[in-house]
Design a protein around this nucleic acid. Sequence first.
DNA 1: ACTGTAGGCCAACACCTGTTGACATGTCGA
DNA 2: TCGACATGTCAACAGGTGTTGGCCTACAGT
Lengths: 195, 195
Amino acid sequence: MTETGSTDTGKARRSDATRAAILTAARERFAADGYERATIRAIAADAHIDPSMVMRYYGNKEKLFAAAAEFDLRLPDLTGVPREEVGTRLTAHLVDRWEHDDTLMALLRAGVTNQAAAERMRQLFAAQLGPVVAALVADRAEAPLRAGLVATQALGFALTRYVLCLPPVVALDRAAVVAWLGPTIQRYLTGEQDA
Amino acid sequence: MTETGSTDTGKARRSDATRAAILTAARERFAADGYERATIRAIAADAHIDPSMVMRYYGNKEKLFAAAAEFDLRLPDLTGVPREEVGTRLTAHLVDRWEHDDTLMALLRAGVTNQAAAERMRQLFAAQLGPVVAALVADRAEAPLRAGLVATQALGFALTRYVLCLPPVVALDRAAVVAWLGPTIQRYLTGEQDA
DNA sequence: ACTGTAGGCCAACACCTGTTGACATGTCGA
DNA sequence: TCGACATGTCAACAGGTGTTGGCCTACAGT
């Protein structure tokens, strides 16, 4: 394998642009078509290169997806936010994150039929959402459950709005989304189980 | 085409068992693998027949899916239920429906990558959940939106529990699911937008 | 100027897919 | 008994898939 050190800030290689183009095209295809329908050939065509280049740079389709599905939710620190506002704040952030990055869509579409993608999704919520929630709740043992509940609503919203495109859900503007989903997320984060 | 009248209650044909076996196998495969990974060959093997029989009886893969994805939510009439209980009642019913029938799973897994399946899902919520919600809300114009919101939470729960298998969500028992999701559904059905 | 090597393309492979048509078998009415 | 028709099997097709290896070209270091 050619030197691909992750830590070195060495000189840029001539192929870096190509690598990036492949990754971008891969994200778009995986997001639009899911794992199996996103073909290496189509991704290569989008990146204006030969399919064999994809193999050379990323080994195989699985590894390409793994590289393309690297994602950071960039969750804000909610400990400084008034407790009654954390639901709306988190909701607004998630919606924004979803609308400005294909990666989550790729993860969602692929995660439904691909085991590795599903595992990624699990890690995403456990490793990134989990800690943020843990810093918020009184009993830290409750954190994974509460993070999971948030995931049900967040992913369900994304699924119905961006994938299945249920018309009434698509029609909602940002403010309405936050107004409707915010209190739900708030309750999952800070509320009691008994209504 | 052989006589396949939909209205006739004529004598059962010898091939009806085969037809049913194909449909059952198709539902299981579509539910487990999604649309593209569920192959005609695998379905035929499960049904212990030749792949060409699937084609003869259902024409092509698309039509087979259409037949396999026929589904009735069997939603109860909620007009007689105390208003503050409709959320938990609907939640409990949906969970039960989901756990005892592969069809919804097939619809969900396929709907993420297949247009026809997504369209089915849209019709399902519009035609079956819509009216039930409409009978419940004061302003009927709000019904589609409220049904859509219910869909976000219901499908999101199914996605995280049965497809992505987030551990904390999988761990919930039936009572806990109803206790957590019930109030959310209740608010989407009968609550005001401003918390 | 020469050469090694990285970057890129082409053709091919082995496999799997949906789909088709020819052929065998069984069943039931005339 | 015989023939029509439903039921089922087998083999093959045309196209698409991930993946591989050989070949060409241009640039960087000497």
